[in-house]
């Protein structure tokens, strides 16, 4: 029981963190039609900036400054990079974001080195929030959840209640028409790109210390983020939200589940002796299969429903 509750909470926390990344990626994709391969690199930048700032002045200023700095870099990238490449079509844009991801990784190597940096959870939040049957739930997890929920609510309010939100919603599908009505759509693109990057940066600030801050973090989380976007349906925010929670829970539960696939069937009176067909597979422990589960899910989704859960267009 406590395994279930704690895993549930951990899974939701991880899922919300994934959504902070996939929401930005989804908005950028819907609006500009470009899959930003460098998106997770902005997550990494957020974590490294937060580390640097928290070493100098502390975690709380970092929580504000790092996402803003990452957002500003995002805007510059859109304004002086992507916008210039845009007129040559989508393939050059994709290549551009690939190059950018590589560039950011090299920059991180140069400045902070190749191994993980010591970016820690702030002392104020390193206790445990509560205990369920002796298993503790860390305060910092609760804080991550709080920040994510606040961000989710603000994103929703901005998109549905403000004028710029309406312009963004309309420009997602009809950018030319919106521009002809007198709205500065290029500037909206820049803001959305910057905003998406700032969200990724924020995810880096609160996730980098809970997980790990190292040069490989962009690649490892980036892969999962693409799984989320494909599962949810390219371009669908609601889809990305559902898929984020799904992957978050799936991974958390799978890692914590000790037992083999075969044992799942034991209560049904079915057993798989090691001699039978695919005997090894049934003996595989679920926790060791955990890292590949999301990819299995993605491949299945691509085969049976290429548009994803809530997507409207095929990949």
């Amino acid at each position: 029981m406590e395994f279930f509750l704690i895993s549930m909470l951990n899974g939701v926390t991880y899922g919300l963190l994934l959504f902070m990344l996939s929401s930005g990626l989804t908005l950028i994709f819907s609006m500009m039609g470009v899959l930003n391969f460098a998106h997770a690199s902005f997550y990494m930048l957020g974590a490294y900036f937060a580390y640097q700032i928290s070493v100098k002045i502390g975690f709380w200023p970092a929580l504000v400054i790092a996402p803003l700095a990452v957002g500003a870099i995002g805007m510059l990238v859109e304004r002086y990079g992507l916008r210039k490449v845009h007129k040559y079509g989508h393939v050059p844009e994709l290549l551009f974001t690939f190059g950018l991801a590589y560039l950011i990784e090299e920059a991180v190597h140069l400045i902070w080195g190749r191994s993980a940096v010591d970016y820690r959870v702030p002392a104020e939040l390193s206790g445990s929030l509560f205990k369920i049957y002796g298993t503790a739930f860390p305060e910092y997890r609760g804080f991550m959840m709080l920040v994510s929920v606040l961000m989710l609510v603000s994103l929703y309010l901005v998109l549905t209640r403000t004028r710029i939100g309406l312009v963004i919603q309309a420009a997602l599908t009809h950018p030319d028409t919106v521009e002809a009505l007198g709205h500065n759509v290029p500037r909206v693109f820049m803001l959305v790109f910057g905003g998406g990057c700032a969200l990724a940066g924020l995810a880096g600030v609160i996730g980098g210390n809970a997980l790990v801050t190292e040069p490989g973090m962009a690649l490892s989380l980036g892969a999962i983020m693409f799984v989320v976007v494909v599962l949810g349906g390219l371009g669908s925010l609601a889809g990305a939200f559902i898929a984020s929670l799904l992957i978050g829970l799936l991974q958390t539960f799978a890692v914590g589940f000790d037992g083999s696939l075969g044992r799942l069937f034991a209560p049904l009176g079915i057993s798989f002796p090691s001699g039978t067909f695919l005997g090894e597979l049934w003996g595989l422990t679920i926790s060791s299969a955990a890292p590949v589960l999301p990819y299995v899910l993605m491949v299945l989704m691509l085969i049976f429903r290429p548009r994803g859960l809530l997507g409207t267009r095929d990949v």
Binding site: R163, L166, V167, Q169, T173, T177, L181, H183
Partner: peptide, 12 residues
């Protein structure tokens, strides 16, 4: 803009 309301379309 199909997903927005009539009112929101006019606002835009």
């Amino acid at each position: 803009f199909p997903t927005l309301t009539v009112h929101q379309n006019l606002l835009l």
